[in-house]
């Protein structure tokens, strides 16, 4: 099957892109890396009549540290997030999750903003953004507004972005000194369809005690889910076999998985528990508390 016809614009500035979004509204889709949108267009599951290609707006692709935040443009490629020393130092969780996103060739083209705006419930970056407490900067006809990650993901493929808005910047709080991060995922095969994943960043004091836990699950609901019960169980504890088992089990009550062709809701719930245990064990091993 081939794409249905569409009108194509290739703006060269963010301002021009936003003006086109305002003009074409619901008819238009911004085209970032295209690694999720173009398959839908090829299969005609999506038939936007206007495509606004952001690939010729160099000002939308950047990565910098700023006042304790790692700031990314929407068009920054996933491969850059994966390999950047800035990212590895500021937000190691992002660097650890990136290799799970598709394949290297997909990440060469796929972008930070594209993955977040597409909001596939199984996608890695939305889970990472939720765990880190990222801020999404949405731009539209009325200017810019900040949407916290907790309010950005509504449902499957649905975000807080209005039809004439686009994601203009992502701000990730830098990991505090002494924190550790891990990401784990289970899927049909490596790089293939992801089923359930867990992203974690755990702050540890000098005695190895958890002072703050931040975990989010992907693929275990219609949007990425913060594992608040797991976090509550862990806080104040040293990560060892018993505390990890209890904390991971608590994740079963945090997720609300849906059943589909790939897995039952029960399977996804247990996978969330298993992935939570896996990331916590990895962090405990790194910290030497287990």
């Amino acid at each position: 099957m081939k794409p249905a016809p569409f009108e194509y614009f290739a703006p060269e500035t963010a301002e021009e892109a936003l003006a086109l979004m305002a003009e074409h509204g619901v008819e238009a889709r911004p085209l970032a890396g295209g690694q999720s949108l173009v398959p839908l267009i090829n299969m005609r599951m999506a038939q936007p009549s206007v495509l606004i290609d952001l690939n010729r707006c160099p000002e939308l692709a950047y990565l910098r540290g700023e006042d304790g935040m790692l700031v990314s443009g929407p068009m920054t490629r996933q491969r850059e997030l994966e390999l950047s020393e800035t990212v590895r130092a500021a937000c190691p969780l992002i660097a650890k999750a990136m290799p799970y996103m598709g394949h290297a060739t997909i990440r060469n083209r796929g972008t930070a903003g594209g993955s977040l705006s597409h909001a596939d419930p199984s996608a890695e970056l939305p889970g990472v953004a939720l765990a880190l407490g990222a801020e999404m900067i949405a731009g539209g006809p009325n200017g810019r507004r900040t949407v916290p990650a907790t309010e950005f993901f509504f449902a499957e493929l649905t975000t807080a972005l209005e039809p004439d808005e686009m994601l203009c910047e992502i701000r990730f709080p830098e990991a505090p000194a002494g924190s550790r991060a891990a990401f784990a995922e289970v899927g049909s095969h490596f790089g293939g369809l992801a089923l359930v994943g867990v992203a974690a960043q755990i702050d540890l004091d000098s005695a190895g005690r958890c002072t703050k836990a931040a975990l989010a699950a992907t693929g275990a609901g219609e949007r990425p889910t913060r594992l608040s019960s797991t976090e509550a169980v862990l806080t104040g504890e040293v990560l060892e076999k018993q505390s990890i088992a209890e904390a991971a089990e608590a994740a079963a009550g945090d997720v609300e998985p849906l059943e589909d062709l790939h897995a039952t809701a029960h399977w996804r719930r247990r996978a969330a528990v298993a992935m939570a245990a896996r990331v916590l064990h990895e962090i405990a091993d790194e910290a030497g508390t287990r």
Binding site: G34, H103, R109
Partner: peptide, 25 residues
């Protein structure tokens, strides 16, 4: 639709799926 990799080419120095890119791009 980007799964099999048979259409992989190099565009501006990096490998990409040519089935997930429009010629105009």
């Amino acid at each position: 639709h980007g799964v099999c990799g048979a259409c992989t080419i190099v565009l501006d120095g990096v490998s990409v799926r040519s089935c997930l890119t429009f010629a105009v791009q």
